[in-house]
Design a protein around this nucleic acid. Structure first.
Lengths: 221, 221
DNA sequence: ACACAATCGATTGTCGATAACCAATCTCTA
DNA sequence: TAGAGATTGGTTATCGACAATCGATTGTGT
């Protein structure tokens, strides 16, 4: 018989063509970065992580390399992979870019108009994000938040722009976002999604851009 | 006297040590993409390229993966790596993004002002690009052109923005840029660099942005 | 006490081999 | 003929192993 090999770590549950071990490793490490399980400034070993996951070094190494390309890790030759530590200047760089790209993207969507169907989909996400806005629920909250924002951007249809924004948002969140929970600002941030969506649906570009601009200030320390 | 080894930060700010085989492979393949030695739509084998280069598959594979992350190649599972074939829609996506990001970046540099020293450096690049603008000299020309534009952007000091722009420009060029040579537009394009630099040095943001906008139209088919 | 050389431990960067996999072709049956 | 199923050819995705390399530690001579 054909020898089925079980994915060692697979919790993915999706029944598409099996993701590569590298892909699984990417999402595992990314989640560890967002949740704070891997701490900024610390160096982690690809081989060590590989044996933790029960796979060989190659796919894990490729995953760490991919995340380094995205600016979430730094390769330290012959030492390991360091989780990036965003300096205030780094934060500022990302913030400036998001102000330019993300705000413009959402503004353009307002110009172009949103179908009722998409509007309802987004409204459901607003609710889900608000419901998830509890400090003991950060990982889930961050995912909902990301989903809502990227879904708006996606309506523009520029896949490269969406990817750029996704990457910038990931960078914003890797060594942060916890100041939100610590200060009880989770709900306050999520509560802004409603007005943003309303402005988007009404096609008021200026309003949605100013609301988005204000909203992004939550991503600053 | 403290005799440091050479931990060495170069002028670029990047640590110097021998490039890894992966890094060498990246620049080799990237050059092959720009020069047209690797053709859009065709699938290439990492292993085959590895034995051509006399190294094992791993570093070459990592290089191809990195270029795939950057959108210059596509991974075709168990088949190889396909050179991206930019559809008109793809070209449009990149063009829109460059209009938003690259034009704004140069405009901001005009606002902030350029030192005489940097101005002279850029002027030399303008000359070098013009001198290289010969159809039999595409590879060199493309490098000079890239150097000039990225040097302007670099003056803003946002490293992430520079990287994004570099990547977008690479995507523009991978499956194109030859329409320029074919139509004898090389010199015409290079000739626009002078006025752009002049506007930049005079601090006229509006002018430099409109010139840059016009200039980018050369990157459309 | 200090600079410098030698050693140590850890981790990568690279290697060569192989099973798994996909697309295309071929074969066989209805 | 048409279509399902087996076969083939070529490539990857993954594995396990090892030398090269780095930072830290220890040792040595002045």
């Amino acid at each position: 018989m054909t020898e089925q090999r079980n994915p060692v770590v697979g919790i993915s549950g999706l029944a598409e063509s099996r993701p590569t071990l590298k892909d699984e490793a990417v999402s595992i490490v990314r989640r560890a970065l967002m949740s704070g399980d891997m701490q900024p400034g610390k160096i982690y070993s690809a081989n060590a992580l590989a044996s933790q996951l029960g796979v060989s070094n190659s796919p894990v190494r490729e995953a760490m390399m991919a995340l380094s390309e995205k600016g979430l890790l730094e390769v330290v030759r012959n030492r390991g992979f360091r989780v990036v530590e965003m300096s205030p200047d780094d934060q500022r760089e990302v913030y400036d870019l998001r102000l330019l790209i993300e705000v413009t993207a959402v503004g353009r969507v307002a110009d172009r108009g949103v179908s009722t169907e998409d509007g309802q989909r987004l409204a459901a996400m607003v609710d889900a994000t608000l419901a998830a806005a509890r400090p003991d629920n950060m990982i889930d909250y961050l995912e909902r938040d990301q989903e809502f924002h990227l879904s708006m951007v996606q309506l523009l249809g520029n896949t490269r722009m969406t990817k750029i924004i996704e990457n910038l948002r990931d960078q914003s969140r890797v060594s942060g976002s916890y100041h939100l929970a610590e200060r009880g600002l989770l709900v306050a941030s999520a509560a802004e999604h409603g007005p943003i969506l309303a402005a988007l649906l009404s096609g008021d570009r200026n309003l949605v851009e100013s609301l988005m601009t204000e909203h992004l200030s939550y991503s600053l320390p």
